[in-house]
Write a protein that binds this DNA or RNA. Structure first.
Length: 674
DNA sequence: CATAGAACATTTAGCGCATA
DNA sequence: TATGCGCTAAATGTTCTATG
């Protein structure tokens, strides 16, 4: 790679003696250590103590001249460790106001070491607000000036954060393999302007965690409009009621191409509709697979004759229509309409073993005719192919518009064994559920369904895994990822700006977190509470004579007070619910208790000083002060604007006025002190 | 009650002036 | 020349609200 070549040369120029043997040896070592993948970079950063990793796709404007944009709020402070925030009011030419800054221990890393950028700092523009990083090249000998001072698109800045608060930087140009790798991936979460790179990115082969990661993201999206990915990869809205599978597939980037089943990293993905995310009980049977019979009348005489022989006239009275439906389980008697039952041939249900591989599942008539047969061999193939790795995702549906919400509790099936499948068939857990009709033209669909599967999911929480496994009688591993998800919600992404006036940071975050974990029923609560809050805020405006048109200020106040109020209310509500002792509410209670616990956990995490989400009080204070000042300024400027001044002029004059008033106050103080 | 478009929010681009 | 600061404008994205 060209970039690696350049890298090597640079190493050479930096103090190596090309002629010497040791130099050459080192040179060879260096070649080996040139970084060509993100994994390698993470390893390098880890060797310097980094534990968290981020990347920012650099916009042209993210350069040393214009500084690197770190987001339109102060949440970047959650990501980049910094020293104290201080106010730089040195009257540099060009500096028009006081500005908050925070020093950062920033190092550029290379394969051969790390180099401190002594002047790196964060600038906290409270007015807009935004955070930018600057000074990262100044005074640093080995800084990647060639990358950080240009405006190329496609550049990437990788950051590694160490335990002791150092920031390690690594910049790559647009043609660098790392940049390309970052631009082509889409599995990582974004955190503000950053992409969060998980430390174990090198464990590529772990498709399970990858799958869970993606499913989590889909879950976090909450309601997703019904969609379907067309064969050419375009996502289109989809309005029919069976969009649950398509929507999930589209989210996973799978387009339904003919017969192939939805497959993500080797995992068979199935979704099933549920009525709520409490019980997770399926609305309808879950289709396991739809294999064609390999023998019997169905195969020999053909499907038309098969249905003519065993089917029944349409019950709703449609003429010229013969149906073949019903439920056929091994523990069920002959079906009334069709006179068939499901049986197993060549299988000993007492030992659970196949006695004859040429046997199979049969649909048998009272006259002992074999209406249809599925040979063990074929079915086994089918089963193992489809269910060696499968994930079942619950979904909620609502309309209009048609939308799906995929649940957090996903059932993962691994290492299935065909004998377990047969066991389930023998016991009637898995049954044959056809829906075939003849209506002039043919339409054929065969569905295997399994009810126990759905029923057993709610037990996950209360009973042990073993019992679930026993019920399922399949080699399945259940992962209670719901809980895991709940704990992993935390994201410092929130718009801290609007909440700075109070401890709204916590409120907002909790709001978001709760929303994400809420059950449907709780939307009502949220709505109720927010309405109440909105009313009282409106009240407050009127009392205070606040101009409702001044939306910025309104927003500040609204959000701050709203969050405080809502938080309180929600808590009260939860608390009261928990006291309900009705038998019917026991389950409810459990859910609510769980939620309250979660709420507390989130709280403690956010107020925990060791947490990356913690923002110290002093900083909040400084920033609040700033914001207050800015609000004042904006107000004043607004006044001038109302009087007909231009935006720029009004702002300038307001600035001067405030400066002047500050001086006046200071003067007064001095006067009184004397 | 869907809808357009207004209002608001977020992100990126870039100017003008500065220093060393 | 390379770098940095402060700010604003433009571009883009999202949410709210008036309207028929």
């Amino acid at each position: 790679m060209a970039a690696s070549g350049i890298n090597t040369i640079v190493i050479f120029l930096n103090g190596q003696k090309p002629g010497s043997i040791s130099g050459r040896k080192k040179f060879l070592v260096m070649i080996k250590r040139v970084i060509t993948s993100i994994t390698q970079l993470l390893q390098l950063m880890q060797s310097h103590g980094a534990t968290r990793f981020y990347a920012k796709k650099l916009s042209p404007n993210d350069n040393s001249k214009n500084q690197i944009y770190l987001g339109g709020n102060f949440s970047a402070l959650n990501i980049i460790p910094f020293k104290d925030i201080y106010i730089d009011d040195s009257d540099l030419v060009g500096s028009k106001r006081e500005r908050a800054k925070a020093d950062v221990s920033f190092y550029w890393i290379r394969t051969e070491g790390k180099y401190k950028a002594p002047d790196a700092q964060l600038i906290l523009y409270s007015k807009y607000p935004e955070v930018r990083m600057s000074g990262f090249l100044k005074g640093c000998k080995n800084a990647p000036s060639d990358i950080m001072s240009i405006r190329d698109e496609g550049r990437v800045l990788f950051l590694g954060i160490t335990h002791n608060g150092e920031v390690l930087g690594y910049a790559t140009g647009s043609h660098h393999p790392l940049s390309k790798e970052l631009y082509t991936q889409d599995r990582w979460e974004t955190l503000g302007v950053f992409i969060e790179i998980p430390p174990d990115t090198n464990k590529r082969q772990d498709t399970k965690s990858q799958l869970l990661f993606v499913l989590k993201r889909i879950y976090e999206k909450q309601w997703i409009a019904s969609q379907k990915m067309s064969i050419n990869g375009l996502i289109e809205p989809y309005s029919a009621r069976n969009g649950g599978g398509y929507t999930l597939e589209a989210e996973l980037g799978i387009s339904p191409n003919g017969h192939s089943e939805p497959d993500y990293l080797g995992w068979e993905i199935k979704q099933y509709g549920v009525a709520d995310f409490i019980k997770f009980s399926s609305k309808s049977p879950v289709t396991l697979m739809t294999p064609e019979p390999t023998g019997g009348i169905y195969q020999d005489a053909g499907i038309v004759d098969f249905i003519r022989k065993f089917g029944y006239a349409d019950k709703s009275g449609k003429v010229d229509r013969i149906n073949f439906g019903g439920i056929y389980a091994c523990n069920k008697d002959y079906h009334n309409g069709t006179g068939l039952r499901l049986g197993l041939d060549g299988y000993d249900s007492s030992t659970g073993k196949i006695t004859d591989m040429s046997g199979g599942m049969l649909l048998i008539s009272r006259k002992e005719e074999i209406a249809a047969q599925w040979g063990f061999v074929d079915i086994m193939q089918h089963w193992n192919r489809k269910h060696s790795q499968a994930a079942y995702v619950p979904s909620l549906f609502r309309t209009p518009p048609p939308e799906y919400y995929y649940g957090a509790k996903v059932l993962l099936c691994e290492q299935t064994d065909f004998s377990l499948f047969l066991k389930a068939v023998a016991s009637g857990i898995i049954y044959y559920d056809p829906g075939i009709k003849i209506e002039g033209c043919l339409h054929c669909e065969i569905t295997y369904s399994q009810n126990a599967f759905v029923n057993s999911i709610p037990k996950l929480k209360t009973s042990s895994r073993l019992s679930v496994r026993n019920i399922l009688t399949m080699g399945r591993q259940l992962n209670a990822i719901g809980e895991e998800f709940a704990l992993r919600y935390l994201s410092p992404l929130d718009n801290i700006r609007s909440d700075n006036l109070d401890n709204g940071i916590l409120g907002k975050t909790i709001n978001k977190l709760l929303k994400e974990t809420d059950n449907i029923n709780d939307h009502k609560i949220v709505k109720e509470v927010s309405q109440k809050a909105a009313e009282s805020i409106k009240d407050y405006y009127e009392r205070m004579g606040i101009d409702a048109h001044y939306t910025n200020k309104r927003e500040y106040l609204l959000r701050a007070s709203y969050e405080v109020l809502r938080k309180e209310e929600l808590r009260k509500h939860l608390q009261s619910k928990i006291n309900i002792t009705d038998i019917a509410d026991v389950k409810n209670k459990e859910v609510l208790e769980d939620k309250l616990e979660r709420l507390m956990a989130i709280y403690s995490r956010l107020t925990n000083k060791d947490s990356v989400f913690y923002i110290p009080e002093e900083i909040n204070k400084v920033m609040t002060e700033f914001n207050n000042k800015e609000i004042k300024l904006k107000e004043l400027a607004m006044e001038y604007q109302k009087q007909g001044m231009s935006y720029n002029k009004a702002n300038m004059i307001a600035k001067e006025v405030i400066k002047y008033e500050a001086k006046k106050i200071k003067g007064n103080d001095e006067y009184w002190e004397q």
